[in-house]
């Protein structure tokens, strides 16, 4: 089970003003190429009919799942969920199969489509600025957010904080902290004034991590293989014995057997 005392980020959609300081900060901090980004603000924008309008923005990046599907899926184990929260990437081992992109229910990992074999394409995604955490700093996006729409801290405390905000302004929030339980819990938590699906967060993703089933499945590989091999061996032996007895007794499959023998010669 995931470490209880891990870092997380809390995003409060009611506070976000879509200024994109977080995005620029991330680009600079992590030296992201101009045609890429690790973080984006949803473009849902305005909804309703003039003059009864609402507006919602969602800052979207890696959810840092407690039981990350990317990590579960990766054949070479390029993803690691760190004890202290971030899900980080090991570019040295990645083979570029892009299964993590498919496995991530939030569409987070991105790939270098335009790099040839010499440049060596890689996957990229938000690292929770693990390198900054190691230096005792907040992630770059959080650190610069002018309205504290993004805050960083201990996951348990942030969950408490989030529930506190809901309790203080029940009229303002949807009564749920997205990420508290979704997909087994995430280290990116979201508060919202509009339904989470309007923020573009997949609903009905469930509390069971997506990878539970597939991990169970893979876990059964060896026992299934052994059992199956045993069964097949037994069947082969059985059939063989049966057939050859029959052959002698009744010569029912004579031609076939001869043909087989001939082949063996």
């Amino acid at each position: 089970m995931a470490n209880k005392n891990q870092y997380a980020m809390l995003f409060d959609a009611t506070r976000c003003i879509d200024c994109r300081a977080c995005m620029v900060a991330c680009s600079v901090e992590n030296n992201i190429p101009m045609d890429k980004t690790r973080i984006w603000v949803s473009g849902i924008g305005v909804s309703g009919q003039y003059p009864n309008l609402t507006r919602s923005t969602m800052v979207y990046h890696c959810m840092h799942c407690l039981e990350p599907d990317c990590a579960s899926a990766c054949p070479v184990g390029a993803w690691t969920k760190r004890e202290d929260g971030p899900v980080v990437y090991n570019s040295e081992v990645c083979i570029g199969c892009r299964y993590c992109m498919n496995a991530c229910p939030f569409g987070v990992p991105k790939f270098d489509w335009d790099k040839g074999i010499v440049e060596g394409p890689l996957i990229d995604k938000c690292s929770m600025c693990a390198h900054r955490i190691d230096d005792g700093l907040e992630p770059a996006c959080v650190a610069t957010c002018p309205t504290d729409a993004l805050v960083f801290g201990d996951r348990e405390e942030l969950i408490a904080e989030a529930h506190g905000r809901i309790a203080a302004h029940p009229d303002r929030y949807v009564n749920h902290v997205y990420g508290e339980t979704e997909n087994g819990g995430t280290s990116y938590l979201v508060l919202s004034h509009v339904p989470f699906k309007d923020l573009g967060l997949p609903e009905g993703i469930g509390d069971e991590p997506l990878n539970t089933l597939s991990e169970q499945y893979v876990g059964n590989t060896i026992p299934v293989a052994l059992t199956w091999a045993t069964v097949l061996g037994a069947v082969t032996a059985g059939v063989h014995t049966y057939k050859h007895k029959n052959h002698k007794a009744e010569s029912l499959v004579k031609e076939t057997a001869e043909a087989a023998e001939e082949e063996i010669q």
Binding site: C19, A21, M23, V24, A25, V28, A143, T144, C145, P146
Partner: peptide
């Protein structure tokens, strides 16, 4: 804090 312009 810096805004987007300040960050850039």
């Amino acid at each position: 804090n810096l805004c987007a312009r300040g960050q850039s």
